[in-house]
Design a protein around this nucleic acid. Structure first.
Lengths: 116, 116
DNA sequence: AGCAAATACCTCTTGCAACAAGGTATATAT
DNA sequence: ATATATACCTTGTTGCAAGAGGTATTTGCT
């Protein structure tokens, strides 16, 4: 029987979303641009990634939302729950662990890579 | 019309494989263990990931292979081509670029994450 | 001698994350 | 008027990575 495991590289959008919301309450559209800004435009998550992720994270109790009417437009603000903060801390640790490991593998004894 | 783009996070196994082969010719089974060793067991790519990747990379001209009979067992040794070396250099640059960006996003002004 | 584990190669099927595209609606700027 | 920006959303596609399993030889254990 085949039991799939998530790739060790998955969940980076989730990490970026939670980490960005950890700087303060934000709504989806704002989040999309904030992530671009925070990564110097290097990472550009689209709305098709962010909105479904927000809904899933709220369903899992990592986020809580409140609707707010601003200028006739409805905004849905998301904030971290205690659970979300703990989860974020774990994600950050995991990310650091694997990037350290990859950095180690990349940085080791080199041939062609030595002359970068 | 839907035209898929690879996720910005994909291709890490490819990077690890090429980078490890850049330390010298290696065969598949050896590579699997070498990657574990080089990452302090943090990343454990299985044969179901490595072998198909090796075949694809050879098809794309990134690797060249030669068969060798050792102790009655057949080993297929893979080595980087010039093209593979250039490709690797690009992958390393790209990896550094996005991990720098994520590090920036993670490291920025924090609330809960500040107390790690 | 017999059996398990290690060595060494391989393919098949599946799950899911991330993505592009497109849809609705209001406000603002030209 | 018309386009762009704001603000929300869902749907369908694709391909990566993973697990599982298959073949065969050799080595180590008892």
């Amino acid at each position: 029987m085949y039991m799939a495991n998530p790739s060790f590289m998955n969940g980076v959008p989730e990490l970026l979303i939670l980490r960005t919301l950890d700087t303060g309450e934000m709504y989806g559209y704002e989040l999309v641009q904030a992530i671009r800004a925070r990564t110097n435009q290097a990472i550009r998550l689209g709305e098709g990634v962010v909105y479904p992720a927000l809904h899933a994270l709220e369903r899992e109790g990592m986020l809580k939302s409140r609707r707010k009417l601003v200028n006739g437009r409805t905004r849905v603000y998301y904030a971290l729950t205690r659970k979300g903060e703990k989860h974020l801390a774990g994600l950050v640790r995991h990310w650091q662990h694997i990037t350290d490991a990859i950095g180690l593998a990349i940085g080791g004894t080199a041939h062609a890579a030595a002359m970068l």
